[in-house]
Amino acid sequence: MELENKYNIKGIIEELEQIINDLFLSGLGIVYENTMEDMKNLVEKCRDIGLTFAGEKLEDMMKELSKKEHSVSFDYSKVVKDYHALSGYVDIVISKIEDLG
C-alpha cells in the first residue's frame, strides 16, 4: 500500500489541529484519557507519514503530561514550549499544503 493511500496528510493535520485545540481549551490543566490515547495514535500516524517533528513533539507532551498525575507542583514550561512548537509546525504545514493547491 502506498503511503499516500494509507494516510491522508490533510486529515492528519486536521487531527493535530483538533488535539492542539483540545489542549488549549483545557488549559493543559485536565487532559482526558481519550485525548492521551488520540495523541498516542497520532504519534504513530505522524511518524509513518514523515511528520517526524510533530510525532516527537506530541510524544514529548504526552510524557510530560503523564508526569503531572504524580506531581503536586507540576512545571508546565516544557509542555508549553512543545505545544507552541507543534502549533507553529502545523501552521507551516497548512501553509505549504495551501500553496500546493
Score class of each variant (00 low, 15 high):
Ser95His: 06
Lys68Gln: 14
Asn21Val: 08
Gly11Asn: 13
Glu69Ala: 08
Ile49Ala: 05
Ile30Tyr: 12
Lys57Asn: 11
Lys6Gly: 01
Glu17Ala: 12
Glu44Asn: 13
Val79Leu: 04
Asp38Lys: 15
Gly55Thr: 05
Gly88Trp: 05
Leu86Ser: 08
Glu17Gln: 15
Val43Asp: 04
Ser95Ala: 06
Gln18Leu: 09
Asp99Glu: 10
Tyr76Pro: 00
Leu23Gln: 04
Tyr89Ala: 11
Ile13Cys: 13
Thr35Phe: 00
Tyr76Gly: 00
Lys67Asn: 13
Met36Cys: 00
Glu37Arg: 15
Phe53Asn: 14
Leu25Asn: 15
Val79Phe: 01
Ser66Val: 09
Val43Cys: 08
Glu69Thr: 03
Leu42Trp: 02
Leu3Phe: 05
Glu2Ile: 04
Thr35Glu: 03
Ile13Thr: 10
Leu28Phe: 12
Ile97Ser: 07
Leu28Pro: 01
Gly29Thr: 04
Lys67Asp: 14
Val80Phe: 10
His84Asp: 15
Arg47Met: 06
Met61Asp: 06
Asp91Cys: 09
Ser71Leu: 11
Leu23Phe: 04
Ala54Gly: 11
Glu56Asp: 15
Ile97Lys: 13
Lys40Cys: 02
Gly88Gln: 14
Ile9Gln: 07
Ala85Asn: 14
Lys10Glu: 12
Leu28Cys: 08
Phe24Trp: 12
Leu28Ile: 06
Asp48Cys: 06
Asp60Thr: 10
Asp48Leu: 10
Ser77Asp: 09
Ile9Asp: 04
Glu17Asp: 13
Ile12Tyr: 03
Ala54Asp: 05
Ile13Tyr: 10
Ile94Val: 14
Lys6Asp: 00
Asn34Thr: 01
Val80Glu: 15
Lys6Gln: 08
Glu59Ala: 06
Glu59Met: 15
Ser66Phe: 01
Leu100Ile: 04
Phe24Thr: 11
Lys63Cys: 04
Lys96Ile: 08
Gly29Pro: 00
Met1Lys: 05
Glu15Arg: 15
Ile12Met: 09
Asp38Ile: 03
Ser66Leu: 07
Glu59Trp: 13
Ile12Glu: 09
Tyr32Trp: 00
Ile92Lys: 14
Ile20Val: 15
Lys10Cys: 01
Asn21Thr: 11
Glu37Asn: 11
